[in-house]
Design a protein around this nucleic acid. Structure first.
Length: 447
RNA sequence: GGCCUUAUCGUCUAAUGGUUAGGACGAAAGCUUCUCAAGCUUUAAAUCGGAGUUCGAUUCUCCGUAAGGUCACCA
C-alpha cells in the first residue's frame, strides 16, 4: 500500500472562504484517516493576481480551524522544477515552442504549447463514476508563457507528480479541466491520482457564493464569534453525512466516520441558520474562562472596565449571556443596546415601567415589593441562590399574582422590559444590591 | 453555443426495485413562564416533467426541463 497523500492547493487570489474550507477539510480528513500526508500548496503562478495578504489569510484560517498541514509549498518557489519538466517534454516532442501573433496587450510572441494527441480521455471520479471527454477541441493548449512562467494546468500536474499526491480532492469546477491535466500527466509519465470532485456550495439565492452572501473569509467568521468546531461541523455536512442521523460531529469523529464515497453529487445551498444553530451548540460547551474572554473582547470599553473591576459578577453572568446568543458577535450588539449594564450599576428607568399590565396602581406595586423585601431579608447571605430566592418568593407571588410581583421585582433589578428572571438576577447581584434596588423602586413608586 | 455535471420537504440531507419517503435547521402551535431566551411536545412541508423496463420505479434506461461548471498567454 502506498501512503495516501492529499493536498489543498488554493491560489492566493482571494481569502479562505467556506467553500475552500470544505475542500481543505475533506482532503485533510482523508489524509488523516489513512495515516497519510496532507500538503498545503499555494498556487501563485499568476503573479499579477496573487497577493501575500491572501496567502497569509489562507494559512491563518486553516491554522485556526486546526487543519494542520504536513508539508508546505509555494509554486513561485519552484520554477526550476517546472522548467526541468518543460525541457523534458520539448525533448520528447510532446511540447513545443510556438510562434504567436499577440492579440492582446501583454501576450507573448512565443509561448510553449502542448502537443495534443487529440483523443478521448476517460477518468474515474469517486463521487460520480466514469467521465469521458474528447480533448480534440482543446487544441494544442498553452502550458507556459516561457520557461520561467508555467501556467496552472502544467504546474498542478508537475506538482502532484513530484509531491506524489495520490488523491486529488477539489471543486467540481475542475472536472472539465481534468482531461487536459491527464494528457499532460501521461506525457510526463506521471501516475494518475484518484480524483474526487466536490459539488459547489451556492448562496441562498442559488447563485455562486460571493461576498454578498456567505463567502466571508473564515477569519471574518472568527471575528463574528463563530467557533472552529461549528464551522468545521457545518461545512462537513454540506456534501457529506455519516449515513445516520448524527448531526453534531467533532473533528476527531469525522476522521473516523468520513467516507469519500458518500460525497454528495448535487450542489448545496449555504444555510446560515444552521451554522448559527451549530455555533450555539458549541458555544454552550465552551469552558467559562474561554467564553469569558470572547465576551469581554466584544464589550464596549466602559462595560469592559466595569466587568474587569467586578470579576466576581462577570464570572456569574457568563452563563446567562451564553444562553442568549448564537455567536459572540451578538454580545457586541446586545451590549450596544444597553443590555448588560444593569449587572454592574443600578438601573435608571421611568416609574410607569415598574407597573405590571394588570396592576397599574403604584402604591399596590410598592406594597408587593415591600413584601418581597421582607422575604428576601430572611435569606442568609450565603444561601442567596436562584433556588432559595425562588422558594422564598414563589408562594407569595402565586398568591398575589405572579406578574404583579415578579414584573416590578425584575424591573427594579434590571430596569429593562426583557432580562433574565428575577431569581437569577438577584443571586448575581447579591443580597445587598438586590435589596438596595428594590428599595429604590419602592421610593420611586411612592415618590 | 459545444462539451461536462447535477436534480428528495424552503434549506442541509437519509432510505429502498415494495416504507405511513426518515432526521436536522428554519417555520407554526402547545407546554413552561412576569419578560426575553433556552428546554420539552406536536404539526405542516419533498422524490422536476414525460415515456420505457418491471407484478411494482423515488431508485434502473431514454427524452425533455431547469440549474451549475468549463471552453484564456486566470487559477
Amino acid at each position: 500500500m502506498t501512503k495516501v497523500i492529499t493536498r489543498f492547493a488554493p491560489s492566493p487570489t482571494g481569502v479562505l472562504h467556506i467553500g475552500s474550507v470544505r475542500t481543505a477539510l475533506y482532503s485533510w480528513l482523508y489524509a488523516r484517516q489513512n495515516n497519510g500526508k496532507f500538503i498545503l500548496r499555494i498556487e501563485d503562478t499568476d503573479k499579477e493576481r496573487s497577493k501575500k495578504e491572501y496567502e497569509d489569510n489562507i494559512i491563518d484560517g486553516l491554522e485556526w480551524l486546526g487543519l494542520t498541514h504536513d508539508e508546505f509549498y509555494r509554486q513561485s518557489d519552484r520554477s526550476d522544477v517546472y522548467k526541468r519538466h518543460l525541457l523534458a517534454l520539448i525533448a520528447d516532442g510532446t511540447a513545443y515552442v510556438s510562434k504567436e501573433e499577440p492579440k492582446e496587450l501583454g501576450e507573448r510572441s512565443e509561448v510553449i504549447r502542448f502537443k495534443n494527441p487529440n483523443r478521448v480521455v476517460t477518468f474515474h471520479d469517486v463521487a460520480r463514476g466514469d467521465i469521458s471527454f474528447d480533448t480534440t477541441e482543446l487544441g494544442d493548449f498553452v502550458i507556459a508563457k516561457d520557461f520561467e512562467s508555467p501556467l496552472y494546468h502544467f504546474a498542478v500536474v508537475v506538482d502532484d507528480f513530484e509531491m506524489r499526491v495520490t488523491h486529488v480532492i477539489r471543486g467540481d469546477d475542475a472536472i472539465s479541466n481534468t482531461p487536459r491535466q491527464i494528457l499532460i500527466q501521461e506525457a510526463l509519465g506521471a501516475p494518475r491520482p484518484v480524483y474526487t470532485h466536490l459539488p459547489m456550495i451556492l448562496a441562498p439565492d442559488k447563485s455562486k457564493l460571493s461576498k454578498r452572501h456567505g463567502a466571508l473569509a473564515v477569519t471574518e467568521y472568527r471575528e463574528e464569534g463563530y467557533l472552529p468546531e461549528a464551522i468545521l461541523n457545518f461545512v462537513a455536512l454540506m456534501g457529506w453525512n455519516p449515513g445516520n442521523d448524527k448531526e453534531i460531529i467533532s473533528l476527531d469523529e469525522m476522521i473516523m466516520l468520513f467516507k469519500l464515497e458518500k460525497i454528495q453529487k448535487g450542489a448545496a445551498v449555504f444555510n446560515i441558520d444552521k451554522l448559527k444553530w451549530l455555533n450555539k451548540h458549541y458555544i454552550k460547551l465552551l469552558p467559562a474562562e474561554k467564553a469569558g474572554k470572547e465576551i469581554l473582547a466584544r464589550f464596549p470599553e466602559m462595560l469592559r472596565i466595569k466587568a474587569e473591576d467586578n470579576s466576581e459578577i462577570f464570572s456569574k453572568i457568563i452563563v446567562v449571556i451564553l444562553d442568549h446568543i448564537s455567536t459572540f458577535g451578538e454580545v457586541r450588539f446586545f451590549a450596544e443596546a444597553g443590555e448588560y449594564r444593569y449587572f454592574f450599576e443600578d438601573p435608571i428607568y421611568p416609574r410607569e415601567a415598574l407597573l405590571w399590565k394588570d396592576e397599574q396602581e403604584p402604591t399596590r406595586a410598592a406594597e408587593k415589593l415591600e413584601k418581597v423585601l421582607v422575604l428576601l431579608e430572611e435569606i442568609d447571605d450565603v444561601f442567596f441562590t436562584p433556588e432559595t430566592i425562588k422558594t422564598a418568593i414563589w408562594d407569595y407571588a402565586t398568591e398575589a399574582g405572579r406578574g404583579s410581583v415578579l414584573w416590578p421585582m425584575r424591573y427594579a433589578l434590571s430596569g429593562r422590559d426583557k432580562s433574565p428572571d428575577p431569581f437569577i438576577l438577584s443571586s448575581i447581584l447579591g443580597k445587598e444590591a438586590t435589596i438596595r434596588r428594590i428599595e429604590n423602586a419602592i421610593k420611586l413608586l411612592l415618590g
